[in-house]
Design a protein around this nucleic acid. Structure first.
Length: 666
DNA sequence: ATAGGGTTAG
């Protein structure tokens, strides 16, 4: 039972945290309150307290305790209950308001943020003054709601009440401006603050970096070092991520050295940032070294490796990582799958791509946004354009990437008409096309032979959509005109371009010359190309084909000699097939090997890569077509029966397939 | 009681 000495009420309001021993309070109740960990327990104790019918003074004290307890066990707590509790308090002071607000800051939803702002306005109306514990939550709520004006208003209150001297308040204020992209305001608050700590520097640097001012962020870091501060691991992560965006390898090495020299804690965040920066700067070896040295890895570490290798174009290494990650039992997430799908798309490993699709379905991961876009791309690039369309149709959240991916995919499959139907549909949905969408639309026009339509898209690009044509778009137009046989128009187009044609454009023209037998024109273009890119074999190959089809043997021979003189060799053709989830790659004149390492690593040497066409037919006759597809076929045709049988034996009885776990494994 | 961190596309 609680028995209180009776205080005059004015005195009570001055004592914020009375010593509970003065209440001769049943200490077991208070102890229970302290050790309480769940809402249920809390409510139980609450009812016990009500039953003990405390005096108003004791009630204020206890409710105060309960409320601060609530704010420490969020988000487990029922916010409605918290609010009811709060309304029981007769004259809540600012610290009680802070406790209340803290309860609502746990859920980080838009609704809770609105409620926090509401409480903030109520407390001001009641004549209370917010303090250093109120403002951080209020700024967080403004950031969550993307409400710049509201935040600016609170900023004024902060100035009026003198809280610009409080680092907690100033730092959250900067973080608020930074999250809304107001970089100048972040800097202004920083410059006007009379004192800084490491968090202030981190916040201002992050303000720059998050908004794309990578160079400024790095410069600010250097300024900080100059001013005598020492960075911690949290700041280093920000600076390293800026360095990754800049792609500056020598800076990356300097930052790595800084970490070692200053004994910055090498935690999983720092490790991940380093792995990422080395991969983005093209130094795979260093990335692997850091990755292997990391004391603890998480899903992000693996994702960084996989997506980094994918972006570098090392798709096989990426998929091997993906497999290794699963072997280690690391739980994969959407980031993993998007990166893996990207690799599948580029390698043409449809089976693995399908497996990932099934994985998404099985784990009830919504096929939307990033995952949906990656799936569409994978199916389109692996030749299953119908599956790509199927994914597209089921997606609820379509963005410019979704439309562009499918437009490009359809165009590449010769479905120019279907691709061009999507374009106006996209505009109707209120989605603005970007420069890549126009590359897709122009390619679609090329493949459908729609010259007029192409001109219209090209004109609309700058006129209606305010996108300046880039070299790629000029290239598309040259290709469009060239393939349609309008060579002279293509030449005129190149001459009228506001920029000098690059090797790609000239190569496109050369391709048009080949299709339409324009030998003399080809020769003059070839001359230009040979000076621009003396090391490329492509133009020579094209030109020799042009001579060959014009029956000009002598010229062709001379060209070959020229190639030899320049030590140019035709890059070997390359092709691959997928069988039961393993990719077999064929290179002309070399050996073939399965994509996956380990058991299947032994190579069968010197197999002509074009064998696969025959293999495909053979497999069809054997009735094993379902797991196999041919991605691209070579053009030469010499074939050795013995070697073919070797491959057949190898594929049928050989290394354990599939290398990737099938749907049944998970 | 209250502030700052890494990975995803066409």
């Amino acid at each position: 039972m609680i028995s209180l000495p009776s205080f005059p009420s004015q005195q009570i309001s001055e004592i914020q945290y009375p010593n509970f021993q003065e209440f001769s309070f049943d200490s077991s109740l208070l102890q229970k309150l302290h050790s309480c960990k769940s809402e249920k327990e809390l409510k139980g104790i609450h009812s016990l307290i009500i039953k003990s019918s405390p005096s108003p003074q004791a009630q204020q004290f206890i409710y105060n305790k309960i409320l601060s307890l609530c704010s420490s066990i969020t988000p487990l707590i029922d916010l409605g209950y918290v609010h009811t509790l709060f309304t029981q308090l007769p004259n809540p002071n600012i610290s009680l308001y802070n406790s209340l607000i803290r309860c609502f800051s746990g859920s980080r939803s838009k609704q809770s943020s609105l409620i926090i702002l509401l409480f903030y306005h109520v407390l001001i109306e009641k004549g209370l003054i917010a303090d250093n514990c109120t403002y951080p939550f209020v700024f967080k709520a403004c950031a969550q709601l993307c409400d710049l004006r509201q935040g600016e208003m609170v900023h004024v209150h902060v100035i009026k009440n003198g809280f610009v001297l409080n680092l907690y308040v100033v730092n959250t204020l900067m973080s608020f401006y930074g999250s809304l992209g107001a970089v100048m305001d972040v800097r202004k608050v920083f410059d006007e603050s009379p004192q800084w700590d490491l968090v202030s520097w981190t916040t201002v640097i992050q303000g720059y970096v998050k908004n794309g001012y990578w160079k400024e962020g790095v410069d600010m870091f250097l300024e900080m070092v100059e001013a005598g501060y020492t960075a911690d691991e949290k700041l280093m992560v920000v600076v390293i991520s800026a360095c990754a965006k800049l792609g500056d390898l020598s800076l990356a090495r300097k930052l790595h050295n800084y970490i070692c020299d200053h004994r910055v804690k090498f935690d999983v965040f720092v490790g991940n940032a380093l792995v990422d920066v080395y991969l983005k700067c093209g130094d795979t070896d260093s990335a692997c070294k850091v990755f292997n040295k990391m004391p603890s890895k998480n899903v992000v570490s693996w994702n960084s490796m996989i997506s980094g290798l994918t972006q570098k174009g090392d798709f096989k290494a990426a998929l091997n990582m993906f497999r290794k990650m699963q072997d280690k039992g690391v739980k994969i997430d959407e980031f993993t799958l998007v990166a893996a799908l990207n690799s599948c798309a580029n390698l043409g490993t449809l089976e693995l791509g399908k497996w990932i699709h099934a994985y998404l379905d099985r784990n009830r991961i919504e096929v939307d946004g990033f995952t949906g876009n990656a799936l569409i791309d994978m199916y389109a690039k692996c030749g299953s354009i119908h599956a790509a369309v199927g994914v597209f149709d089921r997606m609820k959240l379509k963005d410019v990437y979704t439309y562009t991916t499918l437009i490009v995919g359809l165009a590449m499959h010769g479905e120019g008409g279907m691709a061009l139907k999507l374009f106006p549909e996209m505009l109707d949905m209120g989605i603005q096309p970007d420069e890549v969408t126009f590359v897709g639309a122009l390619t679609a026009c090329t493949h459908a032979g729609l010259v007029e339509e192409g001109h219209k898209y090209f004109a609309d690009m700058s006129r209606v959509h305010n996108i300046k044509p880039q070299m790629q778009h000029y290239g598309c137009m040259v290709d469009l005109l060239g393939r349609a046989g309008l060579i002279s128009e293509a030449i005129r187009f190149v001459e009228d371009m506001p920029v000098e044609p690059d090797a790609f454009i000239l190569g496109t023209l050369l391709g048009a010359c080949r299709t339409h037998g324009e030998v003399e024109l080809a020769e003059s273009i070839m001359e230009q190309l040979a000076t621009m890119e003396p090391d490329k074999d492509g133009p020579y190959i094209l030109m020799s084909n042009i001579y060959a089809s014009a029956n000009k043997r002598k010229e062709a021979l001379q060209l070959r000699k020229g190639m030899k003189r320049r030590k140019l060799r035709k890059a070997p053709g390359c092709s691959s097939i997928e069988l039961d989830g393993a990719v077999y790659e064929f290179r002309k004149g070399t050996e073939y090997f399965p994509l996956s390492p380990a058991k299947g690593e032994e190579c069968v040497s010197k197999i002509n890569f074009c064998l696969q066409l025959e293999l495909y037919i053979l497999f069809q006759s054997l009735g094993v077509t379902s797991n196999m597809m041919v991605l691209s076929l070579g053009t030469s045709s010499s074939c050795l029966g013995k070697e073919r049988n070797t491959i057949l034996n190898h594929l049928q009885s050989g290394p354990a397939n599939p290398f990737y776990p099938g749907p049944a494994d998970l």
